[in-house]
Amino acid sequence: TSIVNVSSSLNVRSSASTSSKVIGSLSGNTKVTIVGEEGAFYKIEYKGSHGYVAKEYI
């Protein structure tokens, strides 16, 4: 489990790309479970499925 480190919110994306669809967002200090990594993104558990967040904010 890791913590989201942002002051406002962090986009959760459908794939490991800044141009991919935003499927949701997480607020600062939210706990997330990392299940993998791809480039500059972590794959996380998100709403019963998976999403991707930028590593620099975790």
Results as ranks from 00 to 15, higher is better:
residue 32 V to Q: 01
residue 14 S to P: 02
residue 14 S to Q: 14
residue 5 N to C: 15
residue 50 H to V: 14
residue 31 K to L: 13
residue 6 V to H: 10
residue 24 G to E: 02
residue 29 N to H: 11
residue 8 S to N: 11
residue 1 T to K: 10
residue 1 T to C: 15
residue 34 I to Q: 01
residue 7 S to T: 13
residue 21 K to P: 15
residue 3 I to V: 11
residue 1 T to D: 11
residue 23 I to Y: 01
residue 41 F to T: 01
residue 53 V to C: 03
residue 56 E to R: 11
residue 25 S to M: 14
residue 46 Y to C: 04
residue 28 G to A: 15
residue 38 E to D: 09
residue 35 V to L: 14
residue 9 S to F: 12
residue 30 T to A: 11
residue 33 T to Y: 09
residue 34 I to M: 03
residue 56 E to T: 07
residue 40 A to G: 12
residue 28 G to T: 11
residue 26 L to I: 14
residue 11 N to P: 15
residue 47 K to F: 10
residue 6 V to K: 10
residue 18 T to R: 12
residue 53 V to Y: 01
residue 54 A to W: 10
residue 22 V to C: 08
residue 15 S to R: 11
residue 29 N to G: 15
residue 36 G to W: 04
residue 34 I to S: 01
residue 56 E to H: 09
residue 28 G to H: 13
residue 54 A to F: 11
residue 39 G to S: 04
residue 42 Y to A: 04
residue 49 S to L: 11
residue 48 G to A: 06
residue 29 N to E: 08
residue 52 Y to M: 01
residue 26 L to H: 02
residue 39 G to A: 05
residue 4 V to A: 10
residue 51 G to S: 02
residue 56 E to L: 08
residue 53 V to M: 03
residue 8 S to P: 09
residue 7 S to L: 12
residue 1 T to H: 13
residue 15 S to F: 07
residue 51 G to E: 00
residue 22 V to T: 06
residue 32 V to R: 01
residue 2 S to D: 09
residue 40 A to V: 08
residue 49 S to N: 08
residue 49 S to W: 07
residue 4 V to M: 09
residue 20 S to M: 02
residue 35 V to K: 04
residue 5 N to W: 06
residue 45 E to V: 11
residue 24 G to Y: 05
residue 17 S to I: 05
residue 18 T to Q: 11
residue 42 Y to R: 02
residue 2 S to P: 10
residue 48 G to Q: 06
residue 2 S to T: 14
residue 7 S to P: 11
residue 34 I to D: 01
residue 13 R to Y: 15
residue 43 K to Y: 06
residue 19 S to N: 13
residue 12 V to D: 02
residue 34 I to G: 00
residue 24 G to P: 00
residue 29 N to I: 08
residue 47 K to W: 06
residue 44 I to Y: 00
residue 53 V to W: 01
residue 37 E to G: 04
residue 41 F to E: 01
residue 14 S to W: 07
residue 40 A to I: 09
residue 21 K to E: 13
residue 39 G to L: 05
residue 5 N to I: 15
residue 21 K to D: 11
residue 14 S to G: 08
residue 36 G to T: 03
residue 35 V to C: 07
residue 22 V to P: 05
residue 56 E to A: 11
residue 34 I to V: 09
residue 48 G to D: 09
residue 10 L to E: 04
residue 4 V to W: 03
residue 39 G to V: 02
residue 7 S to V: 12
residue 48 G to I: 03
residue 14 S to L: 14
residue 27 S to A: 14
residue 51 G to Q: 01
residue 38 E to H: 07
residue 38 E to L: 06
residue 20 S to N: 02
residue 43 K to Q: 07
residue 27 S to K: 14
residue 6 V to L: 11
residue 7 S to A: 12
residue 19 S to D: 13
residue 3 I to P: 07
residue 34 I to R: 01
residue 29 N to K: 11
residue 21 K to F: 08
residue 3 I to K: 09
residue 47 K to A: 11
residue 11 N to E: 15
residue 57 Y to V: 08
residue 14 S to R: 09
residue 11 N to C: 15
residue 57 Y to S: 13
residue 29 N to R: 09
residue 44 I to R: 00
residue 24 G to T: 02
residue 1 T to P: 12
residue 25 S to G: 06
residue 12 V to N: 00
residue 8 S to R: 13
residue 47 K to V: 06
residue 45 E to R: 07
residue 1 T to Q: 12
residue 23 I to R: 02
residue 11 N to Q: 15
residue 55 K to F: 03
residue 40 A to P: 13
residue 32 V to N: 01
residue 43 K to C: 08
residue 3 I to W: 08
residue 22 V to F: 06
residue 37 E to L: 06
residue 19 S to Y: 07
residue 51 G to C: 04
residue 42 Y to V: 06
residue 15 S to C: 11
residue 43 K to V: 11
residue 23 I to K: 03
residue 29 N to W: 14
residue 51 G to N: 01
residue 12 V to S: 01
residue 25 S to T: 15
residue 20 S to C: 05
residue 56 E to S: 08
residue 38 E to I: 07
residue 13 R to C: 07
residue 16 A to S: 06
residue 46 Y to I: 04
residue 51 G to P: 00
residue 21 K to Y: 07
residue 24 G to A: 05
residue 47 K to R: 09
residue 49 S to G: 15
residue 58 I to N: 03
residue 43 K to E: 07
residue 8 S to V: 14
residue 50 H to E: 06
residue 46 Y to L: 03
residue 28 G to R: 14
residue 45 E to H: 06
residue 30 T to I: 09
residue 5 N to H: 12
residue 7 S to M: 12
residue 57 Y to R: 08
residue 56 E to F: 08
residue 45 E to G: 04
residue 58 I to M: 07
residue 28 G to K: 14
residue 51 G to I: 02
residue 47 K to P: 02
residue 18 T to M: 15
residue 5 N to L: 11
residue 38 E to P: 00
residue 33 T to L: 10
residue 18 T to C: 15
residue 48 G to E: 07
residue 22 V to Y: 05
residue 28 G to L: 12
residue 26 L to A: 02
residue 12 V to A: 01
residue 56 E to G: 07
residue 25 S to K: 13
residue 39 G to T: 03
residue 13 R to V: 08
residue 27 S to P: 15
residue 16 A to T: 05
residue 25 S to E: 11
residue 6 V to G: 11
residue 58 I to Q: 03
residue 51 G to F: 04
residue 55 K to C: 04
residue 1 T to F: 05
residue 43 K to W: 05
residue 42 Y to M: 04
residue 31 K to D: 07
residue 26 L to Y: 03
residue 44 I to N: 00
residue 28 G to M: 14
residue 27 S to I: 12
residue 41 F to N: 01
residue 36 G to K: 04
residue 42 Y to N: 03
residue 2 S to I: 15
residue 57 Y to P: 05
residue 31 K to G: 06
residue 49 S to K: 10
residue 34 I to K: 01
residue 37 E to Q: 08
residue 14 S to D: 11
residue 44 I to P: 02
residue 18 T to K: 13
residue 32 V to A: 04
residue 1 T to R: 13
residue 10 L to P: 07
residue 35 V to W: 05
residue 35 V to E: 03
residue 24 G to R: 02
residue 5 N to G: 09
residue 32 V to M: 07
residue 42 Y to G: 02
residue 35 V to G: 01
residue 41 F to K: 00
residue 26 L to V: 08
residue 41 F to A: 01
residue 21 K to R: 13
residue 48 G to P: 03
residue 36 G to P: 00
residue 18 T to Y: 14
residue 58 I to E: 03
residue 35 V to N: 02
residue 30 T to D: 12
residue 6 V to R: 08
residue 11 N to A: 15
residue 58 I to D: 03
residue 22 V to E: 03
residue 22 V to W: 05
residue 38 E to N: 06
residue 26 L to R: 01
residue 36 G to F: 03
residue 39 G to H: 05
residue 11 N to L: 15
residue 2 S to Q: 12
residue 58 I to S: 04
residue 7 S to I: 12
residue 36 G to R: 03
residue 17 S to V: 05
residue 26 L to M: 06
residue 54 A to Y: 11
residue 53 V to I: 14
residue 52 Y to Q: 00
residue 45 E to M: 10
residue 46 Y to M: 03
residue 22 V to G: 02
residue 57 Y to W: 09
residue 6 V to Y: 04
residue 34 I to C: 04
residue 30 T to Q: 12
residue 21 K to N: 10
residue 32 V to P: 04
residue 58 I to L: 11
residue 37 E to T: 07
residue 29 N to P: 10
residue 14 S to E: 15
residue 28 G to I: 14
residue 8 S to C: 15
residue 1 T to L: 08
residue 39 G to Q: 04
residue 13 R to E: 02
residue 15 S to L: 08
residue 35 V to M: 08
residue 49 S to H: 09
residue 57 Y to C: 15
residue 9 S to W: 10
residue 36 G to H: 04
residue 43 K to I: 15
residue 9 S to M: 11
residue 4 V to D: 06
residue 14 S to C: 12
residue 46 Y to E: 01
residue 17 S to N: 10
residue 53 V to G: 00
residue 22 V to I: 14
residue 12 V to H: 01
residue 20 S to T: 03
residue 21 K to A: 13
residue 18 T to N: 14
residue 56 E to Q: 10
residue 17 S to H: 10
residue 22 V to R: 05
residue 40 A to C: 14
residue 20 S to F: 05
residue 19 S to M: 10
residue 27 S to T: 11
residue 41 F to P: 00
residue 50 H to A: 06
residue 45 E to I: 13
residue 8 S to D: 12
residue 1 T to I: 15
residue 45 E to D: 08
residue 45 E to W: 09
residue 5 N to E: 09
residue 26 L to Q: 02
residue 19 S to P: 05
residue 53 V to Q: 00
residue 49 S to M: 14
residue 13 R to G: 04
residue 50 H to L: 09
residue 38 E to A: 07
residue 44 I to G: 01
residue 12 V to R: 00
residue 15 S to E: 14
residue 56 E to V: 10
residue 13 R to L: 15
residue 37 E to M: 10
residue 4 V to Q: 08
residue 9 S to Q: 11
residue 44 I to Q: 00
residue 15 S to Y: 06
residue 6 V to W: 05
residue 17 S to K: 07
residue 17 S to E: 07
residue 28 G to F: 13
residue 28 G to S: 13
residue 13 R to D: 01
residue 44 I to S: 03
residue 43 K to D: 02
residue 1 T to N: 11
residue 23 I to L: 09
residue 12 V to I: 09
residue 17 S to L: 06
residue 38 E to S: 07
residue 39 G to R: 04
residue 36 G to L: 04
residue 1 T to M: 08
residue 33 T to W: 09
residue 29 N to F: 14
residue 47 K to D: 11
residue 41 F to W: 13
residue 2 S to C: 15
residue 31 K to C: 14
residue 54 A to S: 10
residue 43 K to P: 01
residue 49 S to Q: 11
